[in-house]
Amino acid sequence: MSSTNIALLGAIAGFTIYLGLPIGRLRRPTPRLKAGLNAVAIGILIFLVWDVLTHAWEPIDEALSEHKWGTVASGGSTLAAGLTIGLAGLVHYDAWTARRRKAAGAHPAGPGAAATAELAPKTHSQAESLALMIATGIGLHNFAEGLAIGNSAAQGDLSLAVLLVIGFGLHNATEGFGIVAPLAAEGERASWLTLLWLGLIGGGPTFLGTIIGQHLVNDTLSIAFLGLAAGSILYVVIELLAVARRTGLKTLTTWCILLGLLLGFATDAVVTAAGV
């Protein structure tokens, strides 16, 4: 298979994320719908944390069984560093942006106040920040998926590559929904440009990973990206759980989280059948 065709496979897998993004254009969803969307996104993201960590741990677990302690040490430290940066890094980043918002709103009113506000850097709403964080975490995850597609196709295993594209494509469609769920839950109607940008962040890395995966296969690199993805997605899950608690709709939230989890496992079935 030519490099162009392999890259096309990665593009198809990555940009199916746009199938789930239009839900971010919903107008004034009801409180129950907002709570349900938020909860389904939580379920999908919980599944992704498990899925990402499973793939990250596989080469470390294999090295443990073969008593390759050097590989265990390098892989384990890489995973720990990725998780730390992805989770704790976002905590500190969120605190920094909160301080910026507070400082921007602390300017006294008076002559020149409007000009000062115009010169102040634009800040995003909490829902926009969450959507961006989800897209970034999913993008890191999808980069590792792209590496798998590119590597299998380059080795001549076309059937496996196609199955990976189908499976990852199904995953990406649900991930697109997860990205914009915070916006829909807060009643913020995303612009088409915003959806385009979020899709590029979340789905584009699949395409890049496919291109790189044709020429480079490195367990440490994959573990690093998967660790970053798991940490960042876990942070978003914590944030969305706080949103869910404020709704007070415990029964609806529980069932919708379960639905999100089941959707994650269902869309993973094709990839599992491929033996990955």
Rank of each mutant, 00 (worst) to 15 (best):
A41W: 05
A56R: 09
H67D: 12
G209D: 05
G43R: 01
L261C: 05
L160H: 06
L240S: 07
A104N: 10
S65I: 13
G24C: 07
S125C: 08
A114P: 08
A190Q: 10
E186G: 14
A273G: 11
A181Q: 00
K68P: 05
I23P: 12
T16Y: 00
P121F: 11
A184K: 02
W255N: 07
L258S: 10
A181N: 02
V162Y: 02
A266Q: 03
I212T: 11
A230Y: 05
V165N: 00
K102E: 13
A153M: 09
L234T: 05
Q214L: 12
W255E: 07
L164Y: 01
V52D: 03
H55Y: 14
H55V: 12
L26A: 12
G203V: 04
H107E: 15
G203I: 02
S129N: 13
K250F: 11
A115Y: 07
N151T: 11
I211E: 00
F143M: 10
L195A: 01
R101D: 09
L158I: 12
G167H: 01
A173L: 04
Q155C: 08
S125K: 05
G203E: 07
F207T: 07
A184E: 03
S129C: 13
L33P: 14
G199S: 03
P182Y: 00
L228N: 05
A63C: 03
E175A: 06
D268T: 10
G264W: 08
Q126T: 13
P111C: 15
L119N: 15
R25T: 05
G36D: 03
D268H: 14
V243A: 11
V271C: 09
L87H: 10
T54S: 13
F265M: 04
I138S: 00
I23Q: 15
V237R: 03
K34N: 12
L90Q: 11
T71R: 15
G105D: 15
R246V: 10
A106N: 11
P59H: 13
D94R: 15
S3V: 13
G203L: 03
K68E: 12
E175L: 08
R27W: 10
M133W: 14
L26E: 10
E58T: 10
L221C: 01
I85L: 12
A41V: 02
I134R: 01
F143R: 05
A63D: 04
T136S: 09
V40D: 14
G70R: 05
G150V: 09
A109I: 12
L132G: 08
A185D: 07
T4A: 13
A244Q: 01
L9M: 08
H107M: 15
G187Y: 00
P111Q: 15
E239H: 08
W192I: 14
S125P: 06
L53V: 06
L196G: 09
T16I: 04
M133K: 14
S3M: 13
L158T: 10
T71N: 13
A266V: 09
P59G: 13
I134L: 01
P59Y: 09
V271R: 12
L26M: 12
S232H: 10
P205K: 00
A109D: 14
G227Y: 01
P31Q: 06
L263S: 03
D157E: 04
I223N: 00
H107R: 15
T267V: 10
G176H: 01
R25L: 08
L45T: 03
I233Y: 00
F168R: 03
L33W: 09
N142E: 02
L261N: 02
